[in-house]
């Protein structure tokens, strides 16, 4: 099993975060494959929302590059206006959403807007929120997936595009967010859970270690008392992942 890629481990872990019967805001790439995997294993009745207005009870039969690709529209349960699916988010009808980002801090706040102190004169202008900030604001749970890198997992992000737990504690409630916040951060090295709005390392992937994660994390690492190795995907799970992404286009990109 040593040939399991970080992408495959992340997809397997992300799929475990989806519960049967849930309505989930699905992203592209790894989250999409996680949704496919969850549907085919433990969560056959999960519903996927795509922010441009698509609702699917069955994932598209072929690999997508964007959520607007024709295969994602064909045989969708519904294809309507974006505000309809965003409205479901605000109505509290979406249990979980996937998101990634350029930077995340220890409270799960994500930056996809700009690197540098001044948003209007940035060092690097990133593309922006898209629907990410809406998912982070309004979904009951946020599942964050990103490459593990000291420059990406920072003590403080330059710009909070998608709110996590702000400064921790009851920050979300104070700013007016009625529920939500990241439930998990899945990286190329490990899995974090959040306690009182603080990221805590729950597991490290095979081949990594607590020390490895610490060396590559930009905040002072908190480690769960029962930290362990991330569960390897079963042969059946790997078969499903590789069946959907046979070339390893998304799951073996080496990021």
């Amino acid at each position: 099993m040593t040939d399991v890629s970080a992408g495959e481990l992340m997809v397997a872990q992300a799929a475990r975060e989806i519960r049967d019967g849930e309505t989930v805001f699905v992203g592209m790439r790894l989250p999409l494959i996680a949704f496919v995997l969850a549907k085919k294993t433990h969560a056959p009745s999960a519903i996927g929302l795509f922010e441009l207005g698509i609702i699917r009870d069955e994932p598209a039969g072929e690999l997508l590059y964007t959520m607007g690709d024709n295969p994602n529209v064909e045989n969708a349960l519904w294809c309507g206006p974006m505000l309809a699916v965003m409205g479901m988010l605000q109505r509290g009808e979406v249990q979980a959403g996937f998101i990634g980002g350029a930077e995340i801090d220890r409270h799960g706040n994500l930056n996809t807007t700009a690197i540098g102190a001044d948003r209007m004169h940035p060092t690097v202008a990133l593309p922006g929120s898209g629907g990410g900030a809406d998912i982070a604001s309004l979904a009951h749970r946020l599942i964050v997936i990103m490459p593990h890198d000291k420059r990406r997992l920072r003590e403080k992000v330059d710009f909070i595009t998608s709110p996590g737990y702000g400064t921790g504690g009851d920050w979300r409630r104070r700013v007016g967010l009625v529920h939500g916040g990241p439930s998990v951060l899945i990286t190329t090295l490990g899995v974090f859970r959040f306690e009182d709005g603080d990221a805590v390392l729950a597991s490290y992937h095979p081949g990594s270690s607590v020390d490895d994660v610490r060396a590559n994390t930009g905040w002072q690492l908190r480690v769960a008392s029962d930290v362990r190795e991330t569960e390897l995907p079963s042969a059946e799970v790997l078969r499903i992942i590789r069946g959907y992404d046979p070339q390893g286009f998304w799951t073996r990109r080496g990021e």
Partner: peptide, 8 residues
Amino acid sequence: KTLLGSDI
């Protein structure tokens, strides 16, 4: 209710 707490 969206974007409350976001720097946007």
